[in-house]
Simulated scan of single mutants.
Amino acid sequence: MAASAETDKIRIYQADWVLPIVSGPIQDGAVAVAGENIRAVGTRTAISAEFPDAEIINFHHTILLPGFVNCHCHLEYAVFRGLLDNRSFGNWILDLIDLKRKIGYEDFVASSELGAAECTASGITTLGEAMSSGASFDAIRKAGLRSRVYQEVLGIDDHQLAETLARLSARLDRLVEQAGRLIEVGIFPHATYTVSPKLYSAVGEMAKEREMKVSTHLAESGTESKYIKSGTGVLALDLREKVGWDQASHEPFGVTPVKFLQQWNVYNRDFMAVHCVRVNPDDVAILAKNDVAIAHCPKSNAKLGCGIAPLPAFFQAGIRVGIGTDSAASSNIMDMFG
């Protein structure tokens, strides 16, 4: 009787094809689910025979597969779709800052809910969310998405380093307390042009102490590479003036963004670099040696004219690579099929 009662709770999803990913495709496949747990995967004949009293839902001419993992996104920017087209990377950054200043927290909440709904509708079930204002946190919980929410941190002026770290620590404490079982909290030092070396190092230490993952935008554009190598360009001048960092000192480092970060001991298996478009063979070797993962965002890279990431080199080096939509502000869509 107990076995029969358990069988009554099982629901079988059938489709012309089931793609388990970890094994080959199954024609006329089925998946047996009990509550939130997958009980069995196989042919519809075998699964129906194993659970004869289960409810059956047949999707017919479809392909059934696990939910997508969107490794990098910014749900808060969903409402900026189409507002930042036809811009170079540097000008895109400057105009994004202006747009963010024009809306309030409640607008970011609505934007996050829109982004979460679009992700869910396209089959995304897990996110790597780079969160700025905090608005996307509740949207993710409301949508029932599994997520690693990376709290963004920025800071160039090391005179404010202690205050920056204190604010970050307090925010992380609140997020961990509210996270629940589907959300993991991480840290997102924004990029090499918005985070000082000392802040990167401090974030790395904080992440180790808290056993958290770290992610950052890295080697995304030629504009970023120019800033790190020669200390010039839009990011060195216009960006710093716009956000009030024009008085903070900056010296060129003469290296690539990947080599720049290597100096501050942030790379490890728990570090995910987003983009990695402007990398050379030495950079790839550094990332592979430190077991750094990469979030590849092809739509964003294309829209902003950043280039094409060398995926074959990543794979040959044994680097873990996932796909990200990035934000609708830089890709216009948060759909893995778009």
Score class of each variant (00 low, 15 high):
E205F: 11
A207H: 09
A207L: 14
A207D: 08
E209A: 14
E209G: 11
E209P: 07
R210F: 13
R210P: 06
R210I: 13
E211N: 15
E211H: 15
E211A: 13
M212N: 06
M212W: 10
M212L: 10
K213F: 12
V214T: 04
V214S: 02
S215Q: 11
S215A: 15
T216K: 06
T216R: 10
H217S: 06
H217Q: 08
L218A: 00
A219P: 02
A219C: 02
E220A: 04
E220Q: 03
E220T: 05
S221V: 05
G222V: 07
T223P: 05
E224V: 04
S225G: 08
S225R: 12
S230V: 13
S230I: 12
G231R: 03
T232K: 15
T232L: 14
T232Y: 13
V234E: 01
L235N: 03
A236R: 04
L237N: 13
D238H: 12
D238E: 14
D238Y: 09
L239I: 11
R240L: 04
R240Q: 09
E241Q: 15
E241L: 15
E241T: 15
K242F: 03
K242C: 12
V243Q: 13
V243D: 10
V243E: 11
V243F: 13
G244W: 05
D246H: 14
D246W: 10
D246M: 09
D246C: 09
S249I: 14
H250Q: 12
H250I: 14
H250V: 13
E251M: 08
E251P: 14
E251L: 14
P252Q: 12
P252K: 09
F253K: 10
F253R: 11
G254K: 03
G254Q: 05
G254P: 06
G254W: 01
V255W: 00
T256G: 01
T256P: 08
T256A: 02
T256N: 01
P257M: 07
P257Y: 01
V258T: 02
V258E: 00
K259R: 15
K259V: 01
F260W: 09
F260I: 09
F260T: 03
F260K: 07
L261D: 01
L261P: 05
Q263V: 08
Q263G: 07
W264H: 09
W264Q: 10
N265G: 13
N265S: 15
V266G: 02
V266D: 03
Y267L: 10
Y267G: 05
N268T: 09
N268K: 10
R269D: 08
R269H: 12
R269Y: 12
D270S: 15
D270C: 15
F271D: 04
M272R: 12
M272N: 12
M272H: 12
M272E: 10
M272A: 15
V274S: 06
H275E: 02
H275Y: 11
C276M: 06
V277K: 02
V277Y: 00
V277L: 01
V277F: 02
V277Q: 01
R278T: 05
R278S: 07
V279G: 00
N280C: 02
D282K: 09
D282T: 12
D282I: 09
D283H: 00
V284L: 01
V284I: 10
A285D: 08
A285W: 05
A285F: 07
I286L: 13
I286Y: 04
I286S: 04
L287I: 07
L287P: 03
L287E: 01
L287F: 06
A288T: 06
A288V: 04
N290W: 07
V292L: 02
V292F: 00
